[in-house]
Structure formats: structure tokens, C-alpha cells
Design a protein around this nucleic acid. Structure first.
Lengths: 211, 211
DNA sequence: AGTAGATACTGCAGAACGCAGCATGTCAAG
DNA sequence: CTTGACATGCTGCGTTCTGCAGTATCTACT
């Protein structure tokens, strides 16, 4: 990773919420549910934040808070303002932060030489299972009713990337399980050749195909 | 994402550091550099944390802090203890938190209907460029001297997943650029059929191939 | 002798998180 | 018609994490 990473000008979370508000008005509770279905896949944030950020958006005039009542229980519905739409549009054109992903199971694979070969292989299996489970969730999403037909194209493009990443993880876990089957121990791969794994990548790099 | 997410018993960061210490003793500064090269790819944490966590590890007897001097400048070298190795090994067998990834550019793609088609396509291009740049970094890592030859197999397996994910992202961005070339606007895909994108995923899901 | 850059951290303010808590509403079973 | 389970709709609070500025020493080069 480069130290010269370009960080985004602003925190993306309020804009992500603004984006959801641009689709339709929501109560925070509905927002939280919708986030679980969509945004959370590629912009995971604690639900707690979804109760604070809309207030700020409202304070800055990017959203409008309307109080409604169900019996005597109050609920706040947030909607986007014209100013909010302009801000959102401007944000779409700003440079983005580098993507990042975290994977605790892979940390365990990386340090697998501190444990047994069986433990390593269990972790690999679990990574594959998790990927399959997430693919199933994506499948369910894709098969379900589209809540916003006018946004299907963007949903499709976005879900597609999640799908590709999970499939890549699944394929990798299968490859890793096959590879490690021949290992003697977690700290001794026997005749298995690590260098050959790198070859295609190193060739692409040294031939300048990646620049 | 499921609400029934299983969270890991403990925070992985101290264990990740413990893992590095199991390879060899480091000063925090060296640790920070090493993390940038390896761990940061799949366990990104602020460098600031690398100055606090080893202290805790030492306080718990999982690591040992040794003070050394370069002239009159002090530096602390951390090394793993026998207890630390046992704890690390035990941790390797515990269930892991779900993986997560965040991608600000994809948020912009997801809400692209709030902006121009050109903006959408710029963001797609930038995502591809970023993936290519990261692949180049991985290539450089893979081509370089292996600092720990006895860990090459684990490095190879781990880097391989990063590579697959970046390649998947790159392929996706190219596909998305081709797809959007025919769109009329960011909120109007014209004749482009979102449903067909889902088809393979939905079929795999409905046939139960993901369970 | 000067200075740019690497090494080696600490302090602090603000952001984010997780979790508990609390109050109301709905719906179904007994 | 009452009880309980679960959904809705939040707020408060303690802890952790992050980013950034600041401090000081060492090394290498001009």
C-alpha cells in the first residue's frame, strides 16, 4: 500500500445517506433496513450512525426532517432538499478514497504457521462457506422484487461486483484447499512451489501490463 | 447482510500484531512498515494503533518489550513470549468475524443517477485504474526479495486472494464501461437489460447450488 | 555546517462503535 | 380481553479508533 494515498475530501457516509434520501424519503429505521440490504455490502457503517448523520444533513439544509405520528409515537421522516441534490451531484464528481477490505479469517490464514495444518484448512473452508452464504444472499436479493424499478440498472451493476468478488473468494478457497492438501504442515508446504503462484502476476507486472 | 452475524470473540488487531511478532521481533516503526506491505491489504488499521497495542500485549505477558539505544535515542523492540505463542495458536482456531469491504467509488456508482452519465463512467474508469495500480503493487511485492523465505507459501496463498479480487474488480470495471456505453443517461439504461445480469446468480441460488 | 529525510514515538480532539435502555405499536394465542 | 412476543423508533454513554500535529534524535549528503 502506498503512503501517498489520496484521501477523499469528505467523509462519504453522510453522502451515502443523502443518496438514499434522493431515492425517496425514509424514517431512520427504514433507512437502517434499507442500508442492510444495499449499502452495507460496500459501505458498512454502524446503524447508530444512521441516527446522527441525518440530523446533521438537516442542520446543513441538505435534508428536511418532518415529524409524523403513529398514535402517540413520534417518528422523523427525512427527505432530500434541492440543495441536497446539488451537493450530492457535486460529490459524485469528487475523487474517492481507496477501497479497503478486511478479512479476519485471512489474517488467520496468513499466520497459519503458528497453528496446525488442520486449523489452516478449517479457516480456508470457513472462508469458502462464508462466500457461498453471501452469494446466496445476493441471489435472494437479485431474485426478489425490485423495490425501485427505475434503479434496477444501478442495482444490477453494483450487485454484480459483489457477486464477482464473492465468487473469486470462493474459487480461491477451493484452490487453496486443493493446494494445502499436499502440504506437510502449516509451516512446511513440502514440494508445493510458492513461486509458481506468483508467476502470472509477476509477468504481468514486469511486462508493464499493469501500468 | 444478515442480522444474525456472528461477531468474533476478540478484536483481531492485537492478534494480528502478535502474529507479526511471531515471525521476528520488531520495533513499532518497523512493524508499521511491515504492516503496510502485508497486513494492511486485508486488515487495514491506523498506524497509531500499532503504537498502543504492543504495550497492551506486553502488559498481558504476550509480548516482551526490550529497550535499545541508537546513540541517545531509545527504541522499544517487541518480541513474542511463549504465552503469546500459545494465545496466538488458540486464536487461530476461533471463529472469525464476517469479512467486509468498503468502496467509496462504488457508492458513487450506486447513486450515479444523481449525476451525469459521464461522471458515472469516470468513476468506473477510476475504479479500474485503482485496481490496476493495486495489482502493480502486488506484482512488485511478488517480484521482490522474500524477506521471510520460510513464510513464502503463506505469503503466496494470501497475496493470491488479493490478486484475484483486484482482477475481478478490473474485469468488472471493463464490463461496466462496455455496458454503460450504450446507456442513454445515468438514470436511463435504454434497451440495456438489468435482469440478464442477475440471471446466472439467480439460477445458482434457486437451484440451491449455493447452500 | 546545514538540512532533508528517516526513525521513534506521544498527545489530543473528534469520529465511530457497540450496547443497553426505553417507550410505543401490532398482532396472535390463550 | 389480556398477555407476550416482536417490530418500530429512537437516545445515552463509555470505549475504541483515527488522523494529525508535535517533538526529538539520528543519518546522509551537500
Amino acid at each position: 500500500m502506498p503512503t501517498t494515498r489520496k484521501t477523499a475530501a469528505q467523509d462519504a457516509t453522510p453522502y451515502a445517506i443523502l443518496g438514499l434520501l434522493s431515492v425517496r424519503p425514509w424514517t431512520t429505521y427504514e433507512l437502517a433496513q434499507q442500508v442492510r440490504r444495499s449499502l452495507h455490502w460496500f459501505w458498512p457503517r454502524a446503524e447508530r450512525k444512521l441516527y446522527d448523520d441525518p440530523k446533521r444533513l438537516a442542520a446543513e439544509g441538505l435534508a428536511k426532517a418532518t415529524e409524523e405520528f403513529t398514535g402517540k409515537r413520534k417518528r422523523t421522516v427525512y427527505s432530500i432538499t434541492a440543495k441536497g441534490r446539488r451537493e450530492l451531484k457535486a460529490w459524485l464528481g469528487t475523487p474517492s478514497a481507496q477501497p479497503s477490505w478486511e478479512n479476519e479469517a485471512l489474517v488467520k490464514v496468513f499466520f497459519a504457521d503458528g497453528g496446525d495444518l488442520t486449523t489452516l484448512r478449517t479457516n480456508l473452508t470457513e472462508m469458502g462457506d462464508a462466500a457461498r452464504a453471501r452469494l446466496a444472499e445476493l441471489g435472494e436479493l437479485a431474485a426478489g422484487e425490485a423495490p425501485f424499478p427505475e434503479r434496477r440498472h444501478l442495482n444490477a451493476v453494483t450487485i454484480r461486483l459483489s457477486q464477482e468478488l464473492e465468487e473469486a473468494t470462493l474459487r480461491w478457497s477451493q484452490w487453496a484447499l486443493e493446494s494445502t492438501a499436499a502440504w506437510k504442515a502449516s509451516d512446511d508446504p513440502g514440494r508445493w512451489d510458492p513461486q509458481s503462484v506468483y508467476t502470472p502476476l509477476v509477468e504481468a507486472w514486469s511486462e508493464g501490463r499493469l501500468t
